[in-house]
Design a binder for these strands. Structure first.
Length: 390
DNA sequence: CTGATTTGACCCCG
DNA sequence: CGGGGTCAAATCAG
């Protein structure tokens, strides 16, 4: 499988992030008349996360280029982070980021990269997205069909206790709340429930599943009967802010320590939802029509034309409103959804990727294309004339 | 200081 | 009754 050829030594993402952050702040502040509007830190953080994930993926490429499942998961995380940023921007009323509008704005500016330049480009992008969705699903279908053979089992390291550092609590330091029993610890409220398999990092910390684009806060860990690895419980970080009830459980597989079973429960009511953001008016209708003349930089992007996704544009035919409320569940992964984790497992086929992920691809395109021997051309990223069709 | 993690206790439910 | 999910104090980390 041919993948993006990693740049020699990898791009300098750290400086890139810094530069990106500055430019975004300037641009957004300009739009709002000088001051950075409240909440934009979150947006910048999301964009930064996307870049960080992309950087990690670049670093992992040498080791993971033959692992489509891993690549798919990582790509999805990147795409999601971008979309999260866009959603936040929309909620913040940044009008210039009306990404649903297929017409280019005249102003340009830093946020322009989140927007298609024309209906043509949008259509072409949507086609690319459809293909992306198909492509993303493939490896996961493979996973569903044939479980990976058991690898050499490593030591039963803790699944999630990797980032908090060692912490030993002194004995009897904690007062036992025997007096007042807590009330109403409900459990049966999980509406949605989806389970998927996610490959672990191939480089770096393999103890953690790849980032899925959301921010989670761990609230518990439990040794599960019959499992060698503990199960970790996470809830959405924005629970307090938005009352987001999304949760997920992460369980490392016994027979494949490099694979995680992630169960998503509840839906994201926060801004970091997977709900599709971009519904190009021309997307569905013209996806096939523009297949051969796609103005997307298939040749210019890191994706070689020959390696381009096989066309299967009906993937996203189902209304995006059917999007499952399960946070972190990409439609593309649903072929992998494993039954058996409760009665509420849904296996309906929906879509999100095509009409959701275009900006990320656009940005990724720019990013992966903008490397140089000494640095990355950020001007290429932020230029309003970038890939202009004028 | 704030937010995240750890971890044993608590509690629901099969 | 016991497994699994959640709570929350203690602690860590930036």
């Amino acid at each position: 499988m041919h993948v993006l050829a990693p740049h020699s030594g990898g791009p300098p993402f750290a400086p890139l992030l810094g530069h990106l952050d500055r430019r975004l702040r300037e641009g957004i502040a300009a739009i709002h008349g000088g001051d950075l509007p409240g909440g934009m830190d979150d947006v910048l953080s999301q964009i930064g996360d996307a870049f960080r994930l992309a950087g990690e993926l670049m670093g992992d490429l040498p080791a993971a280029q033959n692992d489509p499942a891993y690549l798919a998961a990582r790509c999805y995380g990147i795409v999601r982070a971008y979309n999260t940023a866009i959603r936040m921007l929309q909620h913040h009323g940044v009008g210039a980021v009306n990404v649903a509008a297929a017409r280019p704005l005249d102003g340009g500016g830093p946020l322009d990269l989140l927007r298609p330049r024309s209906t043509e480009e949008a259509a072409g992008a949507s086609q690319l997205l459809g293909e992306t969705a198909t492509r993303l699903q493939e490896p996961f279908n493979m996973l569903a069909g044939a479980r990976a053979p058991p690898h050499a089992v490593r030591s039963a390291a803790d699944v999630a206790g990797t980032s908090g550092g060692p912490m030993r609590r002194l004995a009897s330091s904690r007062s036992p709340p025997t007096a007042q029993p807590r009330q109403g610890r409900r459990r049966r409220d999980s509406g949605h429930r989806e389970t998927m398999l996610v490959p672990a990092h191939r480089m770096g910390n393999t103890e953690l599943p790849p980032d899925d684009g959301y921010t989670w806060r761990k609230y518990g860990q439990k040794d599960i009967l019959g499992s060698r690895f503990p199960r970790s419980y996470y809830r959405c970080t924005h629970k307090n802010y938005y009352g987001c009830d999304a949760k997920k459980k992460v369980q490392r597989l016994d027979d494949d320590p490099f694979m995680y079973e992630v169960t998503y429960c509840g839906s994201h009511s926060c801004l970091t939802s997977t709900t599709p953001l971009l519904n190009f008016p021309t997307a569905t209708a013209t996806a096939t029509a523009t297949a051969t003349n796609s103005p997307t930089a298939a040749t210019g992007s890191g994706l070689a034309p020959a390696d381009h996704f096989m066309a299967q544009t009906d993937q996203a035919a189902v209304s995006t409103s059917m999007h499952l409320g399960v946070g972190g569940m990409p439609a593309s992964f649903q072929g992998v959804v494993a039954a058996g984790s409760g009665a509420g497992v849904q296996t309906s086929v929906s879509t999100a990727a095509r009409d959701t992920d275009y900006p990320a691809l656009d940005l990724a395109d720019v990013m992966f294309n903008s490397s140089g021997s000494t640095g990355i051309s950020l001007d290429g990223i932020f230029s309003s004339h970038h890939r202009s069709d004028s």
